[in-house]
């Protein structure tokens, strides 16, 4: 016998919170209950789209309470953390003393560093030769950051450009133009110097690239986006980033592969001290420097103009 037809429910009106949970569970089990009237949090406006950090369970507590609860918890957390950190430092080995582990790992780096990697600057040797996998991951962190910034801020299509954003153009300022005219050549020269001498003196790909990137940003601020756009347009940005990162990835994969399988790698170390030495470190520094320069400039462009 067909069950009596249930009166069709119009738009289920907002569920009034039934008093006892037991009665609603019983009704739910009898299966004739419209599931919407379960003790679901009160009507949609307040807790329904509750995306905030208040979970529905807390939504019944007056608004000010979570704020106080949060601050109290945060205060306890940070005090405990500070206390433990001070205690840790108190237990750490003495500052500035020769630790006993110096004679295993670091001894090898310093004594044979220059001999194997050819780099006078041992830190560059460690970064690009001994622990090269970290630095490969490093430039991909930067690549990932620039992809995220491009995804977030790029708004070349008309509709996606936010309407109330006013672009302030300070590029016609005479003082700025004279100073940048005097400074930029020095900055580029210094950046290239730091880049090329990565394996001889402190510096290297990341710091050299950042200096060159800063030079590009200065040109863009002083002479407006279109002048610097001619130096690094979107095409140049894409080509440089892709070629440099692919070269880095492939070059290092070659070294890892030959090293792991014991094959002889054709990359010689050259005589330490002059520019063209230290195997792959110089070309890698140049590649990383270009990637970092384009990234710094690209990120600035996204914040400044929201498009290339």
């Amino acid at each position: 016998m067909k069950k009596a037809k249930k009166a069709p429910k119009t738009q289920p009106e907002t569920a009034k919170v039934s008093g006892t949970a037991a009665s609603s569970i019983k009704k739910w089990l009898d299966f004739d209950l419209d599931i919407d009237s379960l003790p679901v949090p009160p009507p949609r406006e307040s807790a329904e789209d509750d995306g905030g950090d208040e979970t529905p369970l807390l939504s019944r507590i007056p608004k000010s309470a979570p704020r106080f609860v949060y601050t109290a918890l945060a205060a306890i957390c940070s005090i405990v953390l500070t206390a433990t950190l001070i205690l840790t430092v108190e237990g750490m080995p003495r500052y500035g003393e020769d630790q006993d582990y110096m004679d295993t790992v670091t001894y090898e780096y310093i004594t044979h560093g220059m001999e194997y990697t050819g780099a006078v600057n041992i830190v560059a040797g460690i970064i690009l030769e001994y622990r090269a996998f970290d630095t490969l991951g490093e430039s991909f962190v930067l690549f990932c950051a620039v992809t995220c910034v491009l995804v977030l801020l790029r708004a070349d299509s008309a509709d996606s450009m936010p309407e109330d954003v006013v672009f302030r153009d300070l590029s016609h300022d005479a003082i700025l133009r004279r100073t940048v005219l005097a400074i930029v050549p020095l900055v580029f020269m210094f950046g290239v110097y730091v880049l090329l001498n990565g394996h001889l003196s402190p510096g290297g790909g990341f710091s050299g690239g950042a200096v060159i990137g800063a030079g590009l940003v200065m040109v863009s601020v002083a002479y407006g986006g279109d002048v610097s756009g001619r130096i690094v347009s979107e095409r140049v940005f894409k080509i440089v980033t892709t070629c440099a990162l692919s070269f880095y990835c492939l070059g290092k994969s070659y070294t890892f592969f030959t090293g792991a399988n014991g094959l002889h790698s054709i990359v010689g170390n050259g005589t330490p001290g002059n520019i063209l030495s230290a195997g792959l470190i110089l070309p890698l520094n140049v590649a990383v420097g270009m990637v970092v320069a384009c990234t710094v400039y690209g990120i600035y462009r996204m914040f400044d103009k929201r498009s290339f």
Binding site: R168, L170, D173, I175, L176, T179, I183, L186, V221
Partner: peptide
């Protein structure tokens, strides 16, 4: 010397921005 040359310019730019906005 580089710092003495550049830092007044950056202060000038910030002041101009504040003046404008």
């Amino acid at each position: 010397a580089a710092m003495v040359l550049t830092s007044p310019v950056s202060t000038h730019m910030l002041a101009e921005l504040e003046y404008r906005t």
